[in-house]
């Protein structure tokens, strides 16, 4: 069964055509990596999936909800779709534990004890149980991103969106975060859509790779064959540039 369906989706910012004829189907349990040069529309595409960006034309169905219909309740959709941001977006006025427990408490009405137990388990999983009562301003970028992942998982989402989760991190922090993402995708069987520039990680974690350029999907391949031999010249050029760096 498919988790995400794009049918002829168009997105404009004023006159700028940000997403061009997007047709894409992602099945439950797939791990899909989205790559491409900056400004190619990867982030925009990911943000349309949980309604942070609206689309102007076409149809977009996520977990059975039609996002092209203005009457769709985005809050219900979003409680099943997690998102990890480039800049973490942890709540600055709440400590680490509260960051994780808030949404389950006020959105899903999970009993306090169960909520706390689950939050501590998640913190343990990302290796930050000791930091539960620290404020976001007191922890490093890599730690923040691991908390953000735990916060997303606390809602038990069916789909997680990662929008360049390591782009804002110092190099020595990147690996810790990638390990956590890998663990989450391998162990949970959740559907994941990951925008990243980390090609090694992409190769390891993805079943499927989507290459975008100028708002269009240029290639949609299984991971092994894409990295072995990209079909289009644009993808070949992109890969050679990334790898030579």
């Amino acid at each position: 069964m498919s988790m995400i369906e794009f049918h002829d989706v168009q997105k404009y910012y004023g006159h700028f055509h940000a997403l061009h004829d997007i047709n894409l189907e992602i099945d439950e349990g797939e791990t899909v990596v989205l790559i491409g040069p900056s400004g190619s529309g990867k982030s925009t595409l990911v943000r349309t999936v949980n309604g942070l960006e609206t689309i102007q034309k076409g149809q977009l169905i996520v977990n059975g909800h039609d996002l092209s219909d203005p009457k769709t309740n985005l809050n219900i959709l979003r409680s099943d779709v997690g998102m990890v941001f480039q800049h973490f977006n942890l709540y600055k006025n709440k400590d680490v534990l509260e960051n994780i427990m808030l949404a389950p408490r006020i959105v899903s009405h999970i009993p306090e004890e169960e909520n706390k137990k689950r939050a501590m388990e998640l913190l343990e999983m990302v290796g930050l149980e000791k930091w539960a009562h620290n404020m976001p301003s007191q922890i490093s970028g890599g730690q923040k991103q691991r908390v953000a992942i735990a916060r997303t998982l606390a809602m038990r989402p069916k789909l997680i969106l990662y929008d360049e989760p390591t782009s804002a991190l110092d190099p020595e922090m990147i690996d810790d975060v990638l390990q956590v993402i890998k663990k989450v995708t391998n162990e949970s069987g959740m559907t994941s859509l990951i925008v990243t520039h980390e090609m090694g990680f992409a190769k390891e974690v993805a079943n499927r790779v989507i290459f975008m350029d100028q708002g269009q999907i240029v290639e949609d391949e299984n991971s092994a064959s894409f990295f072995e031999q990209p079909k289009t010249v644009r993808a070949q050029q992109f890969l050679s540039k990334i790898i030579s760096h």
């Binding site: 979003r78 977006n89 942890l90 709540y91 949404a103 006020i106």
Partner: peptide, 13 residues
Amino acid sequence: GGQMEGARSTGMT
């Protein structure tokens, strides 16, 4: 704006 997006993405109204 990230604070609002972070909160909305977890399903908060």
